[in-house]
Amino acid sequence: SEEEEEEWRRAKERGEEIIILGILWKPNDEEAERRIKEALRRV
């Protein structure tokens, strides 16, 4: 969703871990980033 995407962007800017759509994303975690982008597209 729009607000999840916004939340994720803010976490990326701050360089902090975030759990979004049930996926743990850490800074520079390209695999998780790809999965999150896929999940955001499906929503």
Rank of each mutant, 00 (worst) to 15 (best):
E30P: 10
L21I: 06
W25E: 00
P27M: 02
I20G: 00
G22Q: 03
R34G: 06
S1E: 14
W8T: 02
G22T: 05
E5R: 06
R14A: 11
G15Y: 04
E4I: 15
I23K: 01
E33D: 09
R41N: 14
N28A: 07
W8I: 06
R14G: 04
N28Q: 10
R41F: 09
E5L: 14
I19P: 01
E6W: 08
A11P: 03
R34A: 14
R14C: 07
R42T: 09
V43E: 13
N28P: 04
E7I: 15
L40W: 05
E13P: 01
E30D: 13
E4R: 12
L40E: 02
K26D: 03
A39T: 03
R35T: 06
G15A: 04
E13K: 10
G15E: 05
E38K: 03
E16Q: 10
E6L: 11
A39H: 04
K26L: 07
E4V: 15
A11L: 09
E16S: 09
L24Q: 05
K26R: 14
G15K: 06
V43A: 13
P27G: 03
K26P: 05
E6H: 06
G22R: 00
E30N: 09
E4L: 15
A32V: 05
K12P: 03
L40F: 09
E13L: 10
R34Q: 12
E3F: 14
S1G: 15
A39P: 00
E7S: 14
E33P: 00
A32M: 04
R10L: 10
E5S: 09
R42I: 12
I20Q: 01
A32T: 07
P27D: 04
E17K: 05
L21E: 02
I23S: 00
L40A: 02
P27L: 02
R35N: 06
E5V: 10
W25Q: 00
A11D: 02
I20P: 00
E3D: 15
W25I: 01
I23V: 07
E30L: 14
E4S: 13
E2H: 15
E2G: 14
E38N: 05
K37I: 15
R42V: 13
A32I: 03
E7R: 15
K37Q: 14
L21K: 06
L21M: 13
K26S: 09
E38G: 02
W8A: 03
R9I: 11
E16L: 11
I36R: 01
E17Q: 11
I18N: 03
R14Q: 08
P27S: 02
G22I: 11
D29N: 06
E2V: 14
I19G: 01
R35M: 10
P27H: 03
R10E: 08
R42F: 10
E4Y: 15
N28K: 05
W25R: 00
A11T: 03
A32E: 03
A11K: 05
N28L: 09
E3A: 14
E16A: 05
E7G: 08
E3T: 14
L24G: 01
R41D: 13
E30F: 11
I36E: 00
G22Y: 07
E38T: 03
R34Y: 10
A39L: 09
A11Q: 03
V43K: 15
W8C: 08
E6Y: 12
R10C: 12
K26E: 05
L21Y: 08
V43F: 14
R14V: 08
L24A: 04
E5M: 13
E17D: 06
R35A: 13
G15C: 15
I19F: 10
A32P: 00
E30C: 00
K12F: 13
E13S: 10
V43G: 08
E4T: 14
V43N: 09
I19D: 01
R41T: 09
A39W: 05
A39F: 06
P27W: 05
R10A: 12
A32Y: 01
G15Q: 08
L21Q: 08
E38R: 02
I23E: 01
R34P: 00
R41W: 09
R14F: 08
E30G: 06
E7K: 15
L24W: 04
E30R: 08
E2K: 13
E16V: 11
L40I: 10
E5F: 13
L21H: 07
S1Y: 15
E33Y: 05
D29M: 02
W25G: 01
R14P: 01
E17N: 07
E5W: 14
E3R: 14
G15M: 07
R35H: 05
E17V: 12
W25T: 00
L21A: 09
E17F: 07
I18Y: 09
G22F: 14
L24E: 03
G22D: 04
E38A: 07
E6F: 09
R10I: 12
V43D: 09
E31P: 01
E31S: 06
R9N: 10
I19Y: 13
E4H: 15
K12G: 02
I23L: 07
K12D: 05
V43Q: 14
K26Y: 06
E2F: 15
E13W: 06
I23W: 00
R9Q: 12
I23P: 00
A39K: 06
R10M: 11
L24V: 09
I20M: 03
E2A: 13
A32F: 00
R14E: 09
L24K: 11
R9M: 12
L21G: 02
S1M: 15
E31H: 05
S1T: 14
E7C: 14
D29H: 05
I23T: 03
G15W: 06
E30K: 12
L40C: 00
R34E: 14
G22M: 09
E16D: 10
I23Y: 02
E38Y: 00
R9E: 13
E16N: 07
K26M: 07
K37L: 15
E3Y: 13
K26T: 11
R10G: 07
D29R: 01
R10N: 10
E16T: 09
G22C: 14
E30V: 11
E13R: 06
E6A: 10
E7P: 04
I19V: 11
I20N: 01
L40S: 00
K26G: 05
E5Y: 14
